[in-house]
Computed example of a mutant assay.
Amino acid sequence: MIVALSLLGYALMLGLAGPRLLRPDSWADRAPRLAIAAWQALSVTILVSVALAGLALTFPTVTVSGDLAQLLRSCVMAIQEQYASPGGVAAGAAGAVLALAILGRTVGCLAAGLARMAHERAHHHRILDMVGKADPGRGVVVLDSNESAVYCLPGRRRRTVVTTGALLALDDVQLDAVLAHEHAHLAERHDLILGLARALASAFPAVGVFRLAADETARLIELRADDAAAARSGRLTVAGALLAVAAGGTGNLAPSVAFAAGGSGTASRVRRLIPPQNPLGRTRTALGSFAVAALLALPVLVLGGPAAAAAGHNFCPGATASVSTSP
């Protein structure tokens, strides 16, 4: 019971304190890749903590200080003791329902979201096959439209789409910058990252931190792609390219499963690119990476502490005894 309450308290603390530590006006915009990982770790850790709490209620943990036989006896006695009372049975049943419900809901929504994305991509690929024109030199598909749009379709059949309106609005340097932005989305598999965040928000709509994580992840992956493009073409070039794309289109051409260079939030992204780059720094980045790893590891350590303690003990005392007593 203590382990379960500790895990539930940990999940509640993360849900309340996490969004404040990752607010947009903090360090997150200076290190979007680390911030993306932090939001993912925060969401997964909350989910795992609650699921492990249910598991701890179903199967009580024991403290082991002996051999393997004592380990098994302790486990059996703890389970018998818990399920000998109506309260223990109720707690175990509630824990099992909680763990299975979280697992089933998460897997179901994630599978449904991935299937929907695959279906929409396949539909848009068929449209591009009919009306698009391949440009092998640039590695893009050109779509005849007066609207200025550049977007990419992730997945196994990756494609970057550029409209004729965008080709007219952008010079060669700006076009390279926008294409570098889209290539960053594809190379870093931002579709899977955003898919997980949106799946959790869809699975548990009443949990506000999951909705916030999905919104912030969508925003941060655009900042990350901007930084990747700026490393190649320069920050001011990327800012000018984003403005040119946004000024010439409404964003209606790109499907919901694509990553478009322009669209909502372009103005704030451009303002971020205009000042000189102010990175977080190696020391702070390393500390942040350690904190992300600690978020994920702590629930497992809380639940698996007894097992970790038992791992250092001798599980075969009989063999030692036989050696010492042999003539």
Rank of each mutant, 00 (worst) to 15 (best):
L223H: 12
L223G: 00
R224G: 04
R224V: 00
A225W: 10
A225K: 07
D226Y: 12
D226T: 09
D227Y: 01
D227N: 06
A228L: 12
A228I: 08
A228W: 01
A228V: 06
A228G: 10
A229I: 06
A229E: 09
A229M: 08
A229V: 05
A229R: 03
A230C: 04
A230L: 06
A231S: 13
A231L: 11
R232S: 14
S233R: 13
G234Y: 02
G234Q: 09
R235T: 05
R235H: 05
R235K: 08
L236R: 13
T237D: 03
T237L: 01
V238K: 05
V238M: 15
V238E: 06
A239E: 05
G240K: 06
G240L: 02
G240F: 00
G240N: 14
A241E: 06
L242C: 05
L243R: 12
L243F: 05
L243H: 01
A244P: 01
A244M: 02
V245C: 10
V245D: 11
A246V: 04
A246E: 15
A246L: 00
A247H: 09
A247W: 01
G248W: 02
G248M: 10
G248R: 02
G251S: 09
N252K: 14
N252Q: 14
N252F: 04
N252D: 14
N252S: 15
N252C: 00
L253N: 04
L253I: 15
A254Q: 09
A254C: 09
A254P: 09
P255F: 08
P255I: 08
S256N: 08
S256Q: 12
S256H: 11
V257Y: 10
A258T: 03
A258F: 13
A258C: 12
A258V: 10
A258E: 13
A258Q: 12
F259S: 12
F259E: 11
A260H: 05
A260F: 00
A261V: 07
A261D: 01
A261T: 03
G262I: 06
G262Y: 05
G262R: 03
G262V: 07
G263L: 13
G263N: 10
G263P: 04
G263V: 11
G263F: 11
G263H: 11
S264F: 04
S264D: 10
G265D: 07
G265V: 08
T266L: 11
T266R: 03
T266C: 15
A267S: 15
A267W: 02
A267K: 13
S268Y: 03
S268L: 15
V270C: 11
V270E: 11
R271H: 05
R271W: 08
R271M: 13
R271E: 15
R271N: 05
R272T: 04
R272E: 14
R272V: 01
R272I: 04
L273M: 14
L273P: 05
L273F: 04
I274G: 02
I274D: 01
I274Q: 14
P275K: 05
P275H: 08
P276T: 06
P276Q: 09
